[in-house]
Structures are given as C-alpha cells and as structure tokens.
C-alpha cells in the first residue's frame, strides 16, 4: 500500500468512525436509560414484584407468556438475577444489554424501553435462546 492509499484509507476509516459515532452517538446518550430499565426490571424480579416486572415487558412478550399458559407475574420472578451490566448497544429502536450471566433485548416504545427478551444465552450465529421472550 503506498502512502496515498494509506492516507486515503485512514481518511475513509476516520470519516466512517465519525459517522458511526454520530449515528450511535445518540444511543450512547440513551445507554443509561436502557440500563436503568433493565435494573428496574431485575430489581422487581429479585424482590418478587412480578407485576412490576411484567409492566416492563414488551406487549408481544407478555402475550407470548399468556399464550404459553404462563401467569406473567408468577413466572417472571423465577428469572435468575444476573450480574453487573457489561455493555449496552442501541441501534435504532432496538437495544441489547449484556450483563454477567445474561443478555437482555429491549425495544423502544412511546412509553419508554420495554424488555423483549431476558435470560438470553448466545448460540453462535443463531438467535439467542431466552427464558422469557423470543
């Protein structure tokens, strides 16, 4: 690679990084809000406040639990509380919060972030396998 190519590539990468930062920059400002919803969710779960935890689920996730014959408030408190938040990623209306021992997926609704799936484990390139949602 000659010097001009290297300079051009560096400029392209810098530009892309800036644009990506601009695109994802808004999400970094929202990271705390997403992490706070996950904390409220697991606080409710670990304190046995099932109804409060279910209020933070996405409507589709609540409907899936009901379709499976599960009572949301009773089943949700069986989730195991994970460790600390390790990473938050927000892309558009979707978010992923990685915690020690768990991954949570959320969607942005007009009333705020709601949990799409929780208690999720990675399965390579396949979608995560989740205890709730998915």
């Amino acid at each position: 690679m000659n010097r001009r190519d290297a300079t051009g590539r560096a400029v392209a990468i810098a530009t892309a990084t800036l644009l990506l930062a601009a695109t994802a920059g808004c999400s970094s400002a929202r990271d705390a809000g997403v992490a706070a919803v996950v904390k409220r969710f697991y606080d409710a779960v670990s304190e046995g406040r099932g109804a409060a935890a279910c209020a933070l689920l996405a409507p589709r996730t609540v409907a899936e639990l009901a379709a499976a014959g599960d009572d949301c408030a009773e089943s949700i408190v069986k989730l195991r509380r994970p460790g600390a938040v390790r990473a938050v990623q927000i892309w558009g209306s979707e978010a992923q919060v990685r915690l020690t021992g768990d991954t949570v997926f959320l969607h942005s609704f007009p009333q705020g972030w709601r949990v799409r799936a929780a208690g999720c484990r990675a399965r390579g390139e396949e979608p995560y396998l989740c205890v709730v949602g998915g």
Partner: peptide, 26 residues
C-alpha cells in the same frame, strides 16, 4: 457509498437485535 455503509450498519444491527442476534461492526 460510505453513507450507505454507515447507515446500513445501523439498520442491519437494528434488524439483528430485533431477531435476538448480535450486532456487527462496520
């Protein structure tokens, strides 16, 4: 084309998360 790649990364990752899959880097 660069704008397509940047916006495409964001759009693709939103789809990945909606399908409960990991996002990717640019």
């Amino acid at each position: 084309w660069l704008a397509q790649s940047v916006a495409g990364t964001a759009d693709y990752n939103a789809g990945q998360l909606a399908r409960l899959q990991d996002p990717v880097s640019w």
